[in-house]
Design a protein around this nucleic acid. Structure first.
Lengths: 233, 233
DNA sequence: TGAATAGTGTCTATCAGACAATATATT
DNA sequence: AATATATTGTCTGATAGACACTATTCA
């Protein structure tokens, strides 16, 4: 029943905001091979299979580049699932990553699509393997980190307004976020060099123009706040 | 250079507090096989190799049970390292876990030892493979979570005093923790059922007796506080 | 001028943290 | 009584959050 080696793959849960910045979408790709040929699934590759990989993170980048020609703003490993039932081919491992994309990314490949995250979590459409579970875990990671880091900003446009940042945070958390609190967080990040005021403005259909900011991460990690955004429930 | 399958293992970074509750120690085991036979290394097993594993978590439990006959209070997956240079046998994957042990655990097996965590991080003794890196990552996870969860309590004795909880937190964070803040956290946990007052007391050599508490987790996750313990720097 | 939207200022509640005050034991 | 330790209470500071107020545009 068991052998010394197992089939190992890397799967990517790549998220972006819809153009209206209201909802999250998952990048899926239509499988070209068995099993589950033709179904929408997470982009992934076999680790160090027909293509050599220097390490797992490189394999993750390769998966996104090969399958979707997309380069993420943020990429982090979430976990590894391994058991004998997730893949009909036998005992397999999948290390899965959370990737956050620029909302401006375009994909013309018809085998690639962005589907509504909440739909996927509700099994619409159902994904093969345990991909729905992987999506859920990756989203949980994002939601947990959105409470006390700037992770949502990696989903906002290159130059963003306060409203863009607010929408991103709300999409990550799945609930309303206090406008004042978010502004204060942006202020603090500005004073620490993580956000810059571009000086430019964006004119909405009506009303006062919106200031445009730019996200300028100082280092690899995320900016950590020392309080939860959801303290008051 | 590459094949369809890779060697996958699970390694455990199991920590406990020293009897004086001042420092953390890592559980290591003396390797019985090549490579690195005779050296102190993390306990681990080949996933679904000569022994079948229903899933990765089960393999992690098996590693601890087989190698050290130890059962952790808390076990969580930290990450997976995979590359061609970490193991002389070729391209390998290791999924590594953080395990928190009761300080009362005893191990009589001479092939098992608890070595000082800080020493191991300083390469004393040097560990084979990339085990030092895995230890570092697991400890980073613990330190990060100690800031806003009750994770350190899983390292405290079954019935603990405020001082025990304080020592555990300090050992996890690697820096002093405010006594008042910790007491208030215990108060809150008590009001939410996560800590119980046993009514018993412990008499130190001198001075007022210490109240003894018991840690009673309500569910699988950790208790989350909505502020950092280290907000003031 | 009025509607719509953006941005600022003020106040409250909560909790980390410093520190003083009190309680309970041993010698 | 003196000392040591634990525990309680008081005060300050930072910041999330609610909300009122001001600013800037278009129709």
């Amino acid at each position: 029943m068991s052998s010394a080696e197992v089939l190992a793959s890397v799967d990517i849960v790549a998220l972006r905001l819809t153009p209206e910045s209201q909802r999250l979408q998952v990048l899926l790709h239509q499988r070209q091979r068995l099993p589950y040929k033709g179904q929408w699934a997470l982009p992934g590759v076999i680790v160090n299979g027909s293509t050599a990989d220097s390490n797992l993170d490189a394999a993750a980048c390769r998966a996104l580049a090969e399958k979707a020609k997309v380069y993420p703003r943020h990429l982090e490993q979430v976990g590894t699932e391994g058991n004998g039932s997730r893949d009909p081919r036998g005992w397999t491992l999948s290390t899965y990553y959370l990737a956050l994309l620029d909302p401006a990314v375009v994909v013309e490949d018809p085998q690639i699509a962005f589907l509504d995250l909440q739909g996927v979590l509700d099994n619409e459409p159902p994904l093969p393997f345990d991909h729905r579970l992987l999506v859920e875990r990756a989203y949980e990671r994002l939601a947990a980190k959105a409470v006390y880091t700037n992770l949502p900003l990696y989903l906002a446009p290159e130059r963003f307004t306060v409203l863009d940042a607010l929408s991103a945070a709300q999409a990550c958390l799945g609930q309303p976020v206090n406008n004042t609190s978010l502004r204060k967080r942006l202020e603090r990040m500005k004073s620490e060099g993580w956000v810059q005021d571009t000086g430019e403005k964006n004119q909405p259909r009506l009303g006062r123009p919106q200031q445009l900011y730019r996200h300028t991460p100082q280092g690899n990690g995320a900016f950590m706040f020392d309080r939860s955004l959801l303290a008051g429930g």
